[in-house]
Amino acid sequence: MIPDRIIEQGTLTTDGGRAAVEVRIPWYRALPASCISEVALAVDGVQAPAESLTWTMNGETHRIAELASRPDDWWFPLDSAVVSGEVPVEGGGEHRVDVELKLYIPYIIIGDGEVLRIEEHDTKTMAATSAKEAVA
């Protein structure tokens, strides 16, 4: 719906081994964490391993697989979540960031008990901030 808004420009951080970026919901209304089906993060074309990914929202960090059991944890349209994964980021210069989100839309049932799943992708280029600087 609004995939161009997924990646927040200028929010790429790295501690060398992990990279993190802020993401916005590509939908007009809040969705619960249980509707976040799949997440992918790549920096400069290098994909973070799926099992290394974490999702931080409403002050808590979870592995992607844990989100399925959180129907009361809402991703509000104004809030940024943070996706983090194991992917090395070389210092200096601009980096291409790719985020893919697959989200269930829980009120749209297509066919026999099947819930609509949307697939959205965004790419943005930005400099990386060292995680230590970002904390300071």
Partner: peptide, 12 residues
């Protein structure tokens, strides 16, 4: 308001 009948991953 919305009828989020698919809010749980494994069932309606």
């Amino acid at each position: 308001i919305n009828a989020d009948i698919g809010i749980h991953r494994d069932r309606l």
